[in-house]
Simulated scan of single mutants.
Amino acid sequence: MIHPLTELYSVMNLLSPMRCICFTLLLVCVGAGTVQGQTDRLYPTEGEAVIGRTKSLGKNEIVMSVGGKDQTFTPSDVTRILFQGDPAELTRGRELVLEGQYQQAFDELKKIDVAKLSREMIKADAEFYLADVQGQLALSGQGDLGAATKNVIGFVQAHPDSWHFYAATRLLGDLAKAIGNYDKAAQFYGYLGKSPSRELQIESVYQIGMIKLLQNELDPALEALSKVAGLKPSSAGERRLQTFAKAGIAVITAKQGQGKEALDMVNDLIVQLNPTDTQAAAAIYNAQGASYQALGDDEGALLAYLHTQLSYSTHAAEHVEALKQLVELWNKVGKPDRAAQARGELQQRYPGLSG
């Protein structure tokens, strides 16, 4: 077999000196184009992938050089960036994170030797996703909440202007909430309000409102959630936040002793429910359970929480809440064996969250 370089030199020998120079320049241009073609790919939440060179990554702005011109993106409008030089484990790990396959993602990402990665951008991305999956596993009861929190804080301290900053601070809020440190959770969620993204600003208000609800501070919780529910949404994400806020308002209404009004609210949400949004459905049926409890209807509450237990078990926080309520309700209706089953599922499936 003839080596490609040998064949190339043979071709050049057949050319005149001038044509040889031109041919050489052509090869240089083609080679340069090939190098430049090995660039980064940015995937926005809407539209086609953007191919170019990543000039800067910040928590409020990403700049890509595309065809010699700069394009800017808000990080919350970007799902992922594939960098030139990414190891295969990072590429697979990112995809698995987006699919919610956190254990498989962790199995891939932990193979990466971060110190050997070629670009600082790639190192930071690998560090984020590794901290992220460990946080998500802890939130599903399959990891240590304290250790996960330490990992995410370490990432934020090392990369305070990362394009993942707001995702990391949201995760810290979720972890603090799961631990029961509600003041710290509210502080972390407050950072979302500083984002240039209107949707994240709205989420900040919603999350802080839900923290107030967990603290049983019903009036400030209602004030915050009513702000979200009363906005004119400009995106599907904002409409989704409104649905969650309305479910939270129904729970507040139930806690205020207005079970019938709360149930009416929930039933309206069920009618409008997006069947593909299973997390919203879980939140709504848990709110229905709280509404029935406010009316003293234990059987109605059981059915509502059972709906979450059996149909929406992929959402850990809502599933855990339903199981905890079922443990109490089964005992109230005189079925301790069913209460023991619910408690067993809670302890076996969510060892880190069953307390």
Rank of each mutant, 00 (worst) to 15 (best):
A287R: 00
T45S: 13
H3S: 13
A247W: 00
T253V: 11
N286D: 14
Y129N: 02
L263A: 05
L329D: 03
N216F: 13
Q325A: 15
Q242N: 11
T243Y: 01
G93R: 00
C20S: 13
L5Q: 12
A167R: 15
L14Q: 12
A224N: 11
A317L: 11
D40K: 06
Y305M: 05
G193V: 10
A262F: 01
G31L: 05
S204H: 07
Y312M: 08
A317N: 15
L139M: 08
V327H: 00
G31P: 02
S204L: 06
E345P: 02
D183L: 11
L263I: 06
V133T: 09
A236N: 14
G52Q: 08
I208E: 04
A32G: 12
T308S: 13
V333Y: 03
E299L: 14
T149W: 07
K246P: 05
E238L: 12
I2D: 09
P351W: 06
K177A: 10
F23P: 02
K194F: 09
A304P: 06
D268R: 09
G58N: 15
M1E: 14
Y9I: 04
L346E: 03
K123Q: 15
L214H: 09
Y102F: 13
Y182Q: 08
P44D: 08
L306V: 08
R240N: 13
Y292P: 01
R92S: 10
L225F: 03
A148C: 08
S162T: 09
G173R: 03
F83T: 01
Q347M: 14
A186I: 05
A287L: 08
A250E: 07
I21D: 04
E46M: 13
P4D: 09
S354P: 05
L326D: 00
Q347W: 03
Q71I: 10
Y9L: 10
E120S: 14
I153W: 04
T278M: 08
D277S: 04
Q207M: 11
D219A: 14
A221R: 00
R338L: 15
T91A: 05
A262E: 00
A178T: 07
E46P: 02
S311I: 10
R92D: 07
M64E: 01
K227P: 03
K324Q: 13
A262V: 02
V205D: 00
V114M: 13
A340E: 10
H307R: 15
H315F: 15
P233T: 07
T169H: 08
K212F: 06
I62R: 00
R41L: 14
A32D: 04
A340V: 05
Q207P: 05
A105W: 01
G193P: 07
I179E: 12
P4K: 08
M12S: 05
L82I: 14
G68K: 06
G180V: 09
A287E: 02
